[in-house]
Nucleic acid binder design. Structure first.
Length: 576
RNA sequence: GCGCCCUUAGCUCAGUUGGCUAGAGCAACGGUUUUCUAAACCGUGGGUCGGAGGUUCGAAUCCUUCAGGGCGCGCCA
């Protein structure tokens, strides 16, 4: 139950009634109307800006209008203990205790499901990671991986259908170079031939030798004399090994995709031709020339006629090449085919999680989706910005030279899955993230993950001591339901949880969840410590549970933390 | 040269569709433990929201412009 949305609807209904009686005028739409949390100092639960929005069209001072609406709302609603006006013309509402009592007991029935909204179920495709199958994942891939995974979790939590997809770029130069690299490592192992370290475009990493060894051991290929003869087979095996490695890495992060789609498959099935043909029919393909970028100093650019896609019609800054000079497809054209394949599968929403270095690609591929779907489907791209690694207080630069390359495996071994995920997700993905190994490993308040988990563990300890199962019904009846200022603050915070989840989904911003959980935990820890000063604030009084109000508040907090952490992909320990 | 993103307290950052006196944590200083988990709590100080204009009843948020930082930019994927 999102009280902000509920009361937005209720106020709109009320305003409509008032308008129908001819007492006020309403504009065409009430888009600017909001119901939100008032500033802390105000001692109110929700506030509404109706008088400010409506003052112009009614030609009235907003404070006058506020006075008028205040009286109307007092007549229309009985759940408010108090309604008052603040400065330019806000209406502030304070709920009666009975409202919160009802809220608490309704919410508790939903358990971990509290906060999910299932209004319009949609079918989502979330494509993420999609790293080239040329080696294991490194730290840079992590952020996108946990971002995509968590966005998918949130969408599912809210009742949507989600397919998590990985696009394997197993076609083109890079996998060919990778295959060559594997070949040289095989020769190195079998014949003691040196790996050509200085040859450009090869993959020198140690893992390539491991892959080479696996391929030799599996004996699918018998004779490694001539690369040309075995190239296709070797490529297939090399990619298989890479993907196995990547899947293993993803598992360490707690990420599992539903579907791996291979670029080579689309190429082999002539899906690319078909897609380009489709675009030709729609008149989005033409033969033309594109300029090189200004900055390129060496003027080796050959201005030549080639097949282009009119992405400029859809907000891109230049048209994009469809075929290379050797007449094979560009990466972009097979990606168009891939997205056409997504469109054909009938998703309502397409989401791509891209790394920072691919941000420049967004316009052309969203243009492609618009063109292919006649603007009916929208592709939303979310960029995960760089992770700035800090080790021993200093920035740690990764380079592709072997040695100073941190893989997912290294990361998980060092800080663990939970800490890695929680910290990676605790910042807006639009912003560079500082990832300090020492801080992430710390087991104290310095580390927000432990702070939140500790909150859950503390609540569990209360129920453990009482010998009550945390999800069983509490059978106490309070004589009076009365919230003090601490409890009121907590329940208000709880009422923000559905809103937090809704925004996280709408804006694809999961970082709001760790931040919310941290804030909720802060309130809880303060509340807990009150019991040190004043025994009335204990949850266990003479071996018996305190009031139903208190016990249910605890339960609800623990449910939220548990479900919030599970969305983020992190354990909620019952004991620490 | 062009595009995208960022600039909020000493540091790391919150702050949906503009809203009321801009919020946390860390660091600094001072306190709390025979008591349900101190991996915790309480208190104190700290800000022209990068600069300048503009739109608005109202701007950290929108527009223009300048400065600083990051990431990209031909048929690599």
């Amino acid at each position: 139950m999102n009280i902000f949305l509920t009361y937005l609807d209720k106020f709109i209904a009320s305003l409509n009634t008032i308008a129908n009686n001819g007492d006020i005028n309403l504009p065409e739409n009430l888009n600017g109307l909001i119901v939100e949390l008032p500033p802390k100092k105000l001692q109110a639960d929700i506030s509404c800006n109706a008088p400010l929005i409506l003052s112009k069209i009614n030609n009235k001072e907003s404070l006058n209008l506020a006075n008028f609406l205040l009286k109307k709302f007092q007549e229309d609603f009985e759940e408010f203990e108090e309604i008052f006006i603040t400065k330019p013309g806000f209406l502030n509402f304070k709920f009666k205790e009975s409202f919160w009592e009802n809220f608490l007991f309704t919410a508790i029935k939903e358990k971990e499901k509290f906060g999910s909204k299932i209004d319009k179920k949609k079918k989502y495709n979330v494509e993420f990671v999609s790293a080239n199958p040329t080696g294991p994942l490194h730290v840079g891939h992590c952020r996108g991986a946990v971002l995509g995974d968590t966005i998918s979790n949130i969408l599912k939590f809210n009742g949507n259908e989600v397919v998590r997809e990985y696009y394997v770029n197993d076609y083109g130069n890079q996998v060919d170079n990778f295959t060559k690299s594997v070949f040289f490592r095989i020769k190195e192992i079998l014949n003691n031939e040196n790996f050509p370290e200085n040859e450009k475009d090869l993959y020198p990493g140690k893992y390539v030798a491991d892959i080479a060894k696996n391929i030799i051991d599996k004996k699918k290929i018998k004779n490694f004399q001539n690369l040309e003869n075995i190239f296709e087979n070797l490529k297939k095996s090399s990619i298989e090994e890479s993907i196995a490695l990547i899947k293993k890495n993803l598992k360490l992060l707690g990420v599992e995709h539903d579907l791996f789609t291979y670029e080579s498959k689309l190429v082999n099935e002539e899906k690319v031709e078909k897609t380009i043909e489709k675009l030709k029919k729609k008149n989005f393909i033409y033969s033309g020339k594109i300029e090189a970028p200004e900055s390129k100093k060496n003027n080796t650019h050959e201005l030549r006629e080639q097949l282009l896609f009119k992405s400029t019609l859809f907000n891109d800054d230049k048209d994009r090449a469809i075929k290379k000079s050797d007449l094979t497809w560009t990466y972009f054209s097979s990606d168009l085919a891939y997205h056409d394949f997504k469109i054909e599968r009938g998703f309502d929403e397409l989401i791509n999680i891209l790394g920072a270095d691919h941000a420049g690609y967004i316009n052309r591929i969203t243009a492609g989706v618009s063109a292919l779907s006649d603007r009916k489907k929208k592709l939303t791209c979310k960029v995960s910005r760089l992770v700035k690694l800090i080790k021993n207080g200093k920035p740690f630069k990764m380079s592709k030279r072997k040695g100073d390359y941190i893989t997912v495996e290294d990361l998980i071994n060092e800080v663990g899955k939970d800490a890695a995920r929680f910290i990676m997700l605790s910042r807006n993905s639009d912003v560079e993230l500082e990832f300090d190994f020492e801080k992430v490993k710390e087991k104290s308040k310095e580390n927000p993950l432990y702070y939140v988990q500790y909150c859950h563990a503390r609540i569990c300890s209360v129920f453990r001591n009482l010998n009550i199962k945390i999800d069983s019904e509490i059978k106490i009846k309070d004589k009076v339901f009365k919230l003090d200022k601490y409890e009121r603050e907590i329940i208000k915070k709880i009422s923000e949880w559905p809103k937090c989840l809704a925004i996280s989904q709408n804006k694809l911003e999961p970082h709001r969840i760790p931040i919310y959980l941290y804030e909720l935990s802060t309130l809880f820890h303060s509340y807990w410590n009150l019991g040190k000063e004043d025994k009335a604030y204990r949850f266990i009084i003479e071996d018996k549970p305190g009031s139903a109000k208190k016990m249910n508040l605890l339960k609800l907090i623990s449910f939220i933390i548990k479900s919030g952490l599970s969305l983020v992909g992190v354990e909620a320990p019952t004991k620490m």
